[in-house]
């Protein structure tokens, strides 16, 4: 970030940390509802059955992989947009 003094930088970073925590919690709860929704629809038993457990772990794994890949494309896209700003201005 341009033009922040060391003290401002520190304040900024502490806020970012709080924000990251919040982001993480948001991601967690999103993942829980998504994978629950995708994997669990049999309520003839009380605890997760093998199929459901497997599905949940594949769901999380795939989410991570997809997230990683999207993050790469996102960074490239950002870099590209910085290099050539939108028309006008």
């Amino acid at each position: 970030m341009d033009g922040l003094t060391a003290a401002e930088q520190r304040e900024f970073e502490s806020r970012m940390q709080k924000k990251q925590m919040k982001e993480f919690m948001g991601m967690f709860s999103h993942l829980v509802s998504h994978c629950f929704d995708a994997c669990v629809d049999d309520f003839t038993t009380k605890s997760l059955i093998q199929r459901e457990t497997g599905c949940v772990s594949r769901c999380v794994k795939k989410f991570m992989a997809g997230s990683e890949r999207i993050s790469q494309r996102f960074q490239e896209g950002q870099a590209q947009m910085m290099a050539q700003p939108p028309p006008g201005r």
């Binding site: 994978c35 929704d37 995708a38 994997c39 599905c55 949940v56 772990s57 594949r58 769901c59 999380v60 794994k61 795939k62 989410f63 992989a65 997809g66 997230s67 890949r69 999207i70 996102f74």
Partner: peptide, 20 residues
């Protein structure tokens, strides 16, 4: 937004494998 949109469009809900 990007993540939500593209995951929804590209990743089917049957999790037969964990890899993309």
């Amino acid at each position: 937004k990007l993540q939500q949109a593209c995951m929804k469009k590209c990743i089917p809900k049957e999790y037969r494998e964990g890899e993309l």
